[in-house]
C-alpha cells in the first residue's frame, strides 16, 4: 500500500502544545525519560500502553492515535527482543493498528523511533518509506559485529541536507548507544538510494566529527556507511539507534565533571539541559511555526 506522502515537511500549526504519545508495554522501557524529554521540550506527553490503542474499550481506557501530533516508539526490549529486535512489536502494531498509523503519517504528523522503536519502524516498513511506501521492509538492524550488547557514547554527524524535522539546526551530537542489534544493513541499491535522497540523518563519527568509516568503537556496531539514523522521504518519520532522551540533563554526559571544572574556574554558570533535548524541541517547534 502507498500513502500519498505529499504533505510537506515545513509547517503544521496548532494553537496549543503538541501532544506526544509515548508507546509503552510489552517490555518497552524508556517511557519515563522519553516523556520527560518531550515535556522539557514543551510538549504534552502521555505514556500510553499499546493495549489502550488496541483493546482500549475492554479495559476502560480508550486512547486514539489521531488525538496526538507526535508518536514516539521508544527504546526497550519489546517481547524480550526474541525473534529479532522490534520484530514482534512491529507485527503487533501492523496487524492491529496498521491503518491508523498510516493515517497518522499521512496527516502530516511526526513519528520518532529510538533504538527498539527504530527497529520496529524498519520492520513495519515505515522506514525508509521511499515515496510514501510505508509497508515495505527494505532495511534491517542486525546483530552488532562485536557480537555483544554494548553501552557507550558515540559522536554523531548530522546530515544538514536531510529533510529530517527532528535534527534541524544540528550539526553534531553526542549520545549513548545501548543495543545488541544496531548494525544498519540493506542491500546496496537501497543504501545508495537512502544516501542519494539524503535520508541518512545521523552517522557515527570520530571526535572531530569525521565519519567513523566503520572503525570500532567509533562505529559501535558495524553499520554500513556508519548509519546511525534515517528518516523517510518527508523527513517526518525518524529512526535512530542512539538515545537522545538519555541526554536530558547536562550531567548525563560522560565527561560533564571535566567540563564543570572549566565552567567553575571561569566562574561561568553550569548548564542544565542535555544535548539530546533539541531533537524533541525541534519536533515541538514543528507545530508552532
Amino acid at each position: 500500500m502507498k500513502g500519498n506522502g505529499k504533505v510537506s515537511a515545513s509547517s503544521f500549526h496548532i494553537p496549543r502544545s503538541p501532544r506526544a504519545l509515548v508507546l509503552t508495554g510489552y517490555g518497552l522501557n524508556c517511557d519515563l525519560e522519553t516523556t520527560h524529554a518531550f515535556e522539557l521540550a514543551g510538549a504534552e506527553a502521555h505514556r500510553v500502553h499499546i493495549n489502550q490503542l488496541i483493546i482500549g474499550e475492554s479495559i476502560g481506557e480508550i486512547v486514539r492515535l489521531e488525538d496526538y501530533e507526535i508518536v514516539a516508539f521508544i527504546g526497550g526490549f519489546s517481547w524480550g527482543d526474541d525473534h529479532g529486535a522490534g520484530v514482534l512489536l512491529a507485527t503487533k502494531l501492523l496487524y492491529n493498528i496498521g491503518e491508523e498509523m498510516l493515517a497518522f503519517i499521512e496527516a502530516g504528523k511526526l513519528v520518532i523511533g529510538i533504538c527498539n522503536g527504530f527497529q520496529a519502524l524498519v520492520n513495519l516498513g515505515l522506514l525508509p518509506g521511499f515515496d510514501g511506501d510505508y509497508r515495505s521492509r527494505r532495511v534491517a538492524l542486525i546483530w552488532n559485529d562485536c557480537g555483544n550488547f554494548r553501552d557507550q557514547w558515540v559522536h554523531l554527524r548530522v546530515n544538514e541536507d536531510s529533510r529530517c524535522v527532528f535534527t534541524r539546526g544540528l550539526e553534531r551530537l553526542e549520545l549513548a548507544v545501548r543495543h545488541g542489534e544496531g548494525k544498519f544493513y540493506a542491500e546496496e541499491p537501497i543504501i545508495k538510494r537512502i544516501l542519494e535522497e539524503n535520508q541518512v540523518v545521523l552517522r557515527y563519527a570520530d571526535k572531530e566529527g569525521n565519519p567513523a568509516k566503520g572503525r570500532f568503537p567509533e562505529n559501535p556496531n558495524g553499520s554500513l556507511e556508519d548509519i546511525a539514523g534515517i528518516c523517510d522521504s518527508t523527513g517526518r518519520v525518524f529512526g535512530l539507534m542512539p538515545h537522545p532522551e538519555a541526554f536530558n540533563h547536562w550531567t548525563n554526559h560522560p565527561e560533564w565533571t571535566r567540563q564543570k571544572e572549566h565552567y567553575r574556574r571561569k566562574r561561568k554558570p553550569y548548564p542544565t539541559e542535555g544535548g539530546g533535548i533539541q531533537i524533541f524541541r525541534n519536533a515541538v517547534n514543528y507545530f508552532k511555526h
Partner: peptide
C-alpha cells in the same frame, strides 16, 4: 563487562562506572 550492561536506561545516569577522558 561494564559495556555489556545498559547503565543509562531511565536517563538518570550522572556519574557512570567508567569515567575520565577515555571513559
Amino acid at each position: 563487562i561494564v559495556r555489556q550492561y545498559d547503565h543509562e536506561v531511565q536517563g538518570s545516569s550522572v556519574i557512570k562506572h567508567l569515567v575520565g577522558v577515555h571513559q
